[in-house]
Amino acid sequence: MSEISEIAIAEPLKVETPLHRFMSDFADNKIALVAFFVLLGIIFIAIFAPVISPTDPYDLAKVSIFDSKLAPGTKSMDEVTFWLGTDTSGRDLLSSIFYGLRISLGVGVLSGVIALCIGSAIGLMAAYYGGYVDTLIMRIVDIQLSFPAILVALILISVLGKGVDKIIIALVLVQWAYYARTVRGTALVERNKEYIEAASCLALSNNRIVFRHLLPNCLPPLIVVATVQTAHAISLEATLSFLGVGLPVTEPSLGLLIANGFNVMLSGLYWVSFFPGIALLITIVSINLVGDQLRDVLNPRLQK
């Protein structure tokens, strides 16, 4: 039969999931691949900081003022090597950076995830209901995005006060609009595609159509925005902390470490703020490189 012949021609492909295809496309760019592994390393450090740090920089019993201001590579009195030196209170800088990464990455990712959930729910709603709901939501988004993020964050912090939770709230409020705009844009395009019509023709429920059909197809641009926004959140938090309005001193992020070292920079203790700065730079650059490659791979217009 003629129909069967068409099947016979189809070469016996291995089952190639979109994920497989995506991963092999991603690996095409070697720089992005390196950035990806660097990022994995950073995430590993952030998660296991308490285990892998040479010392606990916040255990006051173990921090000795006699170890303060030691240059990188110096040994302490009890034979611990301070590879990156110590700060003005005698804390091991390497350990401080590990703990700082944990805080910076934690705040960045957590605020990113919350903003993503809230923003995409709002964006989906705008696209699905349209009309006044859409107009209202998009006006708020436009207004929000027309102010510089740092300004909005500063105002929010001065209203909310200090603290990890306050910083996360401020970062979420600054970021949700990016997610909402992205999801709405994609959902408006996807909503009019025939597979959505097919789903409604099959009398599937609205919930199922939105969450099983619409949302998964809005994910690619969302993932890209999420990486870029996470890097943005981390640097925003660092800026706020550097300005002294971010995280409390008891939870020093990379930004606070840089600020602490900044005061003694001119006295020759360059390492106290230099190494946390490098750590922040590597983190943000690697997230952005991964994000760029994700954008290239997920962009349907570039896809072969």
Partner: peptide, 13 residues
């Protein structure tokens, strides 16, 4: 309904 576009009418995911 059977649709015109065999690409857009199937959920790619």
């Amino acid at each position: 309904m059977i649709f015109q576009d065999p690409f857009a009418s199937l959920n790619p995911r």
